[in-house]
Design a protein around this nucleic acid. Structure first.
Lengths: 224, 224
DNA sequence: CTCCGCTAGATTGTATACAATCTTCTGACG
DNA sequence: CGTCAGAAGATTGTATACAATCTAGCGGAG
């Protein structure tokens, strides 16, 4: 997994590893990132590690305070609302552009749907999230707008952090993938409005489930 | 201008200086950024400079290739189309949220309009661009969605690069600021649809002017 | 004349070392 | 008993030094 990649992309691998650890919540929001610890963990000196942290700072995943150090960017409930609002706007644009090109993502989506069924049965949440992300990345790519893809990628990083922090298996019904299939069907017919309508409901439900969970958790902090 | 700021934010000042140089075209798209040259220019060693470049890489302003070095991210005509498309989606969302809150930006806009008149008379393009950016930053801030503000900020950095690379004074009529005033008037009345309609036309005109300029330049590469 | 391989110089990548700053603990004073 | 000054330890910031890699220019083979 921590493959000995070609030395030319050692740095990129480092950034990817750190990013993945942040997205999956292994480094949870607010966690302090001590340079020497991380450097030793990844078998490098602090110099390249610091550069990786700066890169992630630029991506909005890490906050660095002078002489204080780096922490995984914190997440508040309002972030959830703001992120889903932003994501809807970006993904709607992606759908509109993808529909104009009659993008056909039905095959890969069906394949992912089958995988998702297995993941739900196995209660494998991280695998589910990854399938979800891959699906939406396909939609983004179908827009043929690299800047939109990049912006959506950044938002998705934040969304992944929210999911790994707040989602439960029960909140992830298979119906999610029915929505995905409805979206790609509409896309293949060039029907952007339908696709966006489904997406809008899809995201509202997802967001509201998270917010409801947050409220219940705030009421009973130590449920576990 | 290169103020001796408090030592705690030396790094942030360095990033700001580099970013500003990129946005204003002093470091034009495609320019190679040689570490030792820049380090000497800013009176520091390569270590903090490299970190600054990594940060800008994360912001999408710089491209770094292993063992090759950093380059100001190149700009192609398609980038102009893609960026304006993305910007319209983001700024429409900002307008909608600002209108919901009846944000009143009329005063500051009128003030900027007056400054813009002077800048146009003086043919001071960089000053004009800055006024433009500040106006749109106000709109973004009025959305009360920090993630949207950040996303729009990143897009604006790219837009600024486009402007400084391709804009001419003749392409910047004072009518731009009439549009701005129409937008803030609509906002103050909570009329998001009107604001978005004006913005849509506003951006189309701006984009088309740039594209027309690019085409004419491609036809006659060595004018001037 | 062209193309290939090679060397010298330029440039990037990073480990080490040390300075600067912050944090925590201790102990004295009120 | 609380508070504050100070010192020790921990952590971050960066300059220097050197290794790794790339680039450009030269000379020889075909």
């Amino acid at each position: 997994m921590t493959a000995p990649r070609a030395p030319e992309q050692r740095f990129e691998s480092l950034v990817d590893a750190l990013r993945e650890a942040i997205l999956t919540g292994r480094y949870a929001p607010g966690t302090r990132l001590v340079q020497e610890e991380l450097a030793e963990a990844y078998g490098i000196s602090r110099i390249p590690l610091r550069e990786a942290l700066r890169r992630l700072e630029g991506e909005g995943l890490v906050v660095i305070s002078p002489n204080k150090g780096a922490v995984v960017r914190p997440l508040a409930p309002k972030d959830v609302v703001d992120l889903y609002e932003l994501r809807l706007a970006l993904e709607s644009l992606a759908l509109r552009r993808a529909a104009e090109r009659f993008a056909d993502l039905r095959e890969s989506t069906r394949r992912r749907h089958a995988e998702a069924k297995r993941a739900i049965a196995a209660r494998a949440l991280p695998a589910l999230f990854k399938l979800d992300r891959d699906f939406h990345a396909d939609v983004a790519a179908a827009s043929d707008n690299p800047h939109l893809v990049a912006a959506l990628g950044a938002q998705w990083s934040q969304i992944m952090r929210v999911m790994h922090a707040y989602f439960q298996v029960e909140m992830y019904p298979e119906a999610v993938w029915d929505d995905h299939e409805a979206i790609v069907d509409a896309l293949a017919h060039g029907d952007a409005d339908t696709a966006i309508a489904v997406l809008t409901r899809h995201l509202s439900e997802s967001r509201d489930a998270i917010l409801a969970h947050l409220r219940s958790r705030a009421a009973a902090p130590n449920t576990s």
